[in-house]
Design a protein around this nucleic acid. Structure first.
Lengths: 197, 197
DNA sequence: CGGATCGTTGATCAACTTCAACGGTCGTGG
DNA sequence: CCACGACCGTTGAAGTTGATCAACGATCCG
């Protein structure tokens, strides 16, 4: 079995009991793709043909508003799926851009293969149900957090929630993810280190 | 078949081809419950044993912050599911409160029945996968909106997205849903009507 | 009738943005 | 291999948005 699939199968096995036989079938639906830092996987207006599973590296999805500001929707590193979900599911034009923050390897799953796989491998239907179910629970808390918390709380909560990834991200991207200006993040960091001394 | 189930089965049939036979089985997993206006379905700290499908009326889920402010997470009217998802799925204490904004009828589905139903009726596994998938796509846009848009944009977008429900909600609840103060909503409304004259 | 709830309006205040300037570092092309 | 430009973070000053506080009127319902 190709090395890159290990990350995927571990992720699946974490949710449903997958057999070696299933793995063979599942593998056949995916296509592997390498991306260089700053390379696009999807651009606004494209048709989003794939959902992608990151096996190595780091990606982001984001929108650009009328003033040209980027708003990051999601970071995806090893073990995360990324896509323009609305586009993938409903077939409309992508509203999101997706690009690589680091050199990245992904496994691409096309709409057709997605549907085919779900039908042929009932276990995967269950896997995605569980995956989505968990993401929903998580998204809820991010939404509440976006609405209720102060800039400082958002920032510290982000670091608490994703301690590992904080290191790999320049802080202007964290700002964009949290809906704050880079200057605000800078000032918060300063304030935090000052209070700790 | 009980009248109240019509709403549920229409909702299901909208996503997957359900048979009369399946309907009988599915029905058996649900319990019907009536709630009066202001009645709790779930309180913070409780164990969330059910997900609920609203067949009539209007409910909300919300958190209360340390200052005592309520932040509405979700409105659910006819054809919507409502629950403390994280609690239901992972079994931890509910962080959300759920209560009725109008007199409401819901169909309750317990964790045990949920799991049983998903296993016994593969079609429902698919139904929930599609349901979650669609909600995810929707949540994404609400999140982006919460982060990027101004108060006025949030308000007008809300009315555009849910034209029917806007009428049934007092505007302080809309404010709470959008993460704005009631005064702000009031001023926005004023501004809008003024510009339109 | 009386209290609770809801919306409105005004005044002040706090949080965060925006704009601008500057220093450091990294990577790339000459 | 060095120099230059791009990118990133920092800091200060000023500006905006929306929250908060307070008072008041209207409506609804018991």
């Amino acid at each position: 079995m190709e090395q890159v699939f290990n990350v995927l199968f571990e992720h699946i096995a974490d949710k449903v009991p997958i057999t070696e036989r299933d793995k063979e079938v599942v593998m056949s639906f995916f296509r592997r793709k390498k991306l260089r830092k700053r390379q696009y996987l999807l651009q606004e207006g494209d048709v989003c043909k794939y959902i992608s599973f990151v096996t190595e590296g780091l990606m982001r999805s984001y929108t650009v508003d009328e003033k040209g500001n980027e708003h990051i929707n999601l970071f995806a590193w090893e073990g995360w799926w990324i896509s323009d979900f609305a586009g993938f599911i409903f077939g409309n034009e992508a509203k999101l851009n997706i690009d690589a923050i680091e050199d990245t390897t992904v496994l691409l799953l096309s709409v057709e293969n997605y549907e085919k796989m779900l039908t042929e491998v009932p276990l995967m239907e269950r896997y995605f149900r569980v995956l989505y179910q968990n993401s929903l629970a998580t998204k809820d808390s991010r939404l509440i957090s976006a609405i209720t918390h102060t800039a400082e709380e958002k920032y510290t909560m982000f670091l608490d929630t994703y301690p590992s990834i904080g290191q790999r991200l320049p802080q202007n991207l964290i700002a964009s993810y949290l809906g704050l200006s880079p200057e605000t993040i800078s000032r918060i960091k300063k304030k935090i280190t000052e209070t700790n001394t």
